[in-house]
Amino acid sequence: MAEAILLKDKRWSLSGMTALVTGATRGIGHAIVEELAEFGAVVHICSRNQADIDRCLTEWKSKGFSVTGSVCDVLSRHQRENLMETVSSIFHGKLNILINNAATVIAKESTDYTAEDVSTIMQTNFESTYHSSQLAHPLLKASGYGAIVNISSLAGLKAFPNVSVYAASKGAINQVTKNLALEWAKDNIRVNAIAPGAVMTLLLEACMV
């Protein structure tokens, strides 16, 4: 059994790989960072709150993980651009893995959504994923081996009550994932989406209030 574990670890080693994970200080993003770091990747994270970043970096340093972080509200185009400049500087113009995880949800009846609600959800969930992928493209291409993983949702595939706009944003992510995978295969960049079901995170709790 021990030998099998060693072989698995060697097979899936991410030693020498670099990764960027958005929305990484809690929930699914936090777990992804730990998994990447356990397999040897050097990871940069972003979050809206510096205190949350500092808390996580202290935790991960105690585990021997190689993780850095910077503040970025992915709702802001300017902050997304600054984030990618930071990542380019830290990783010397190359990036192997981009995890588009940051997202928000506003739970309401479909008749109650405002224009501001729709803009906030679509910009945070879909536009940030699309734009971050565009910004990361030259870094991923330069690495010679790039991978994008977009965190979608089961809500993007089937209907659930009170999350119609969130569902639409995740459905858009599912489709653009296919398009980017097709277009960027020539650049040796793989693009995939993961659609989790219900995971007890703060995002899910917001839907249950």
Rank of each mutant, 00 (worst) to 15 (best):
M1K: 15
M1Y: 15
A2M: 08
K10Q: 08
S13D: 10
L14K: 00
L14R: 01
A19V: 02
T22R: 01
G27N: 05
G29F: 11
H30F: 08
A31V: 11
E38C: 05
V42G: 13
V43D: 09
I45R: 03
I45N: 06
N49D: 15
Q50H: 08
A51I: 11
D52T: 14
R55H: 04
C56V: 13
E59A: 09
K63F: 05
T68K: 01
T68A: 04
S70C: 13
E81Q: 07
T86I: 15
S88G: 13
S89M: 11
K94A: 14
K94T: 12
L95P: 04
L98W: 00
L98D: 09
I99E: 13
T104S: 11
V105K: 05
K108S: 08
S110I: 14
D112P: 10
E116L: 06
T120R: 01
T120N: 02
T120F: 02
N125F: 00
E127R: 02
E127D: 12
S133C: 00
S133L: 00
Q134C: 03
H137L: 08
G146D: 12
A147L: 07
I148L: 04
N150S: 06
S152F: 02
A155H: 05
K158Q: 15
A159N: 05
V165Q: 07
A167M: 09
A168E: 14
K170H: 08
N174K: 05
L180S: 13
K186M: 14
D187N: 05
V191E: 14
I194L: 10
I194D: 15
V199R: 07
L204S: 10
E205G: 02
C207L: 13
M208R: 03
V209D: 13
